[in-house]
Amino acid sequence: MAILQVSDIYKDFGRTQVLRGINFSLEQGQAIAIIGSSGSGKTTLLRCLNFLETPDRGRIQVNGETLFDADDPATQRESEVRKKRLHFGLVFQSFHLFPQYTALENVTLAPRLLAGERPDFKARRKELFAQIDAQGRVLLERMGLADRAGHYPHQLSGGQQQRVAIARALALKPDILCFDEPTSALDPELTGEVLKVIRSLAEQKTTMLIVTHEMAFARDVADQVIFMDGGVIVEQGAARQVIEHPREERTRQFLSRYAEN
């Protein structure tokens, strides 16, 4: 059974139709790359999946549980939506680290806040925080940042900040890790170090949705590629098939622009 099932998602902003009937599924341990021109709906789709935007129509299921159904108001209560966001980890284009916190504090902030909601928190506060800090250090080590735990964002390069953001997203152990063009704010030299981390996560069978403009990376790392245009999925299939031998003319036109650059 698919870990994520997205069914007939629509989203409008005023009179502008941004998503028009999006359907796809994601299997456990699979990485799907989502490609397309600016304005095709890629980021809005991720924001709907993370409940940062509310779809106008459709249904979102994770592990067989309906997290959102536009026809069921019970799935749209803010108290419920907050819990459901925990199924997804989101890495933004521009890092969004808290400047007043160190790398380790950025990674451990959300787990500490969640720990505070436990009924045994007062009795186990010191123990729980020690465990969270230890787990945060392990994540930073995985990102190649063990020696940067005490550094503040302004003391880190863009690539290092993005790797801290990835560690932060992983800290809550999400079912699905989502990336919204994670290298678009980086220069070419720093892009490689972030893509290397994502490649490593794919090799470890981390379940991921990756909005990216890196076509070679999508071809080599993703299991599936979705090409979006005008708010619809134009083509979906095995990564190499879509990138190297697209079936749809619109996909070929889009990819030809990258081949020319």
Rank of each mutant, 00 (worst) to 15 (best):
E27L: 09
R59E: 14
G89H: 01
T207H: 08
Q28W: 06
K173G: 01
I132A: 11
N50D: 13
D12K: 04
Q135P: 06
T108R: 06
F92H: 05
D180V: 10
Q61C: 12
E193H: 03
L255N: 05
K122T: 07
D71S: 13
D120V: 02
F98H: 10
S184M: 04
L255Q: 05
A185I: 05
P182R: 02
I35W: 04
F51P: 14
E78D: 13
L145S: 11
I60T: 10
S256M: 13
G41L: 10
L49M: 11
D223K: 10
E65C: 02
L90K: 00
S38F: 02
N261F: 15
F13M: 08
V6C: 11
A167P: 00
L104G: 06
Y10D: 13
G58N: 09
D56Y: 08
K11S: 02
L128G: 05
S200M: 06
T54N: 12
E260V: 13
I198Y: 00
N106C: 13
E203M: 08
H213L: 06
R137Y: 11
L4E: 07
P188G: 03
L113D: 04
L45F: 07
N23F: 03
R257C: 12
L97F: 11
T75N: 08
H87Y: 15
E27A: 08
I166F: 00
Q236T: 04
V194G: 05
L113M: 15
A31W: 01
V6E: 15
P174N: 11
R15T: 09
Q93I: 07
I132R: 07
L67T: 09
K11V: 01
D120K: 02
D72T: 11
A202Y: 01
K205H: 15
P174C: 05
Q241M: 05
F98Q: 10
G21T: 03
L67I: 08
D69L: 04
R112F: 04
M1D: 14
I34F: 05
G64L: 13
R252S: 09
G237T: 00
D120T: 10
R20S: 14
V138Q: 15
P55G: 04
F92T: 11
R124F: 09
I233Q: 04
Q241Y: 00
L113V: 12
A185Y: 06
K11L: 13
C48L: 11
Y10V: 10
T206I: 09
L172R: 07
E193F: 01
G41M: 03
K42S: 06
R199K: 11
V242N: 00
L140Q: 03
F129R: 10
E65I: 13
T251C: 09
F24Q: 05
E78G: 00
